[in-house]
Design a protein around this nucleic acid. Sequence first.
DNA 1: AAAGCTTGTGCGCTATAACGCACAACGCTT
DNA 2: AAGCGTTGTGCGTTATAGCGCACAAGCTTT
Lengths: 189, 189
Amino acid sequence: MTKTPIQLNLRAARAKAGLSLSKTAELTGVSKAMLGQIERGESSPTLATLWKLAKGFHLPLTALIEDLAQTPETASPAQNHVVALQGSIRFRTVFAFDPILGAESFLLTLEAGQSHVSQPHDTGVIEDVFVVSGEMELLRNEKWHRLQTGDAMRFHADQSHGYRNLSDGTAQFYNTIHYPKTGVFTRPS
Amino acid sequence: MTKTPIQLNLRAARAKAGLSLSKTAELTGVSKAMLGQIERGESSPTLATLWKLAKGFHLPLTALIEDLAQTPETASPAQNHVVALQGSIRFRTVFAFDPILGAESFLLTLEAGQSHVSQPHDTGVIEDVFVVSGEMELLRNEKWHRLQTGDAMRFHADQSHGYRNLSDGTAQFYNTIHYPKTGVFTRPS
DNA sequence: AAAGCTTGTGCGCTATAACGCACAACGCTT
DNA sequence: AAGCGTTGTGCGTTATAGCGCACAAGCTTT
């Protein structure tokens, strides 16, 4: 008999707090009988009841209803996954997209004179740019912003944006893309 | 009359898909009358009904029940927020903790000979290390791992871990800490 | 103007969530 | 062994989720 996340999570929260059904009922305001029904999968709680549980245990709702799997540990050596983009811009995947964290990270290299304009991502996508070395510019809201080594910017990537390097040297930036809950299933390549 | 997240999110999902209550009922298997009740806040849907909605709209559950606020855009110049830690290690907050993304990012500087051992974070905390420059070592599972410029590692930070620089030069790394849903309320300073 | 279609709301009925309470089973104390 | 307290389950009752259907209102077509 497969158990649902709410069954497993409620039992785990209760065990972690070392509470019986009776004590949990006092803590959350949900009856002892209903708690037992939820844990045994005999009843599907309403959102109002879920809120009582979350509030009583001081947990966000997602901690009760979602399947909390584990993000694996990863080593990413410097020589990993270097690819070319559009015949010129180089990028390397530092951390591949992780569905639990909802994010992925790249190291991008802009040689002197190179530029790149990105298609807007889906609604709610947030992008971080941290300049590792060199000098570059970031296009946001039709305006170029100059960034130097150590500068960083966070912006809404669901709008048109781009990168360029007008300096004489090479620029590199560490680029993290955060996908919202609503958008993870439509992640572009 | 304040509306709950489920009211706003269901109406937004329907509007985005351009569907009437009738079409949405066909798509999700939840009756037209119930959809109206949910949107007007007249009924609290069960978890089973929420699943039908999420599945019909191809959305994760969280997208229906959580308050999806917006992460603000941020500029973080190189001279920002540089502080000393334990009288020796320098670090700068690049992106402060954001409750929506559940993450924060720092730039840490290890001078020659410096080391630092971190207390374990709460359960489920994930840490990313990307070496921006220099050479350093990362302590995980009682073992030191050597990292050079461009190397990166992702690891479970709820276990003892540390950093040290045994080289002759300075090392810098970009450090992102991801907090799990269940732990965001207990974030350490 | 009349007819037809779409949309959202309200109503009454059925199914089930949620509850209080009793009780079986178990463990601990006297 | 008897008594007491704790724990989880089951039952019957109440409240409400969820539904099909009718209908008012609005819009489009004839």
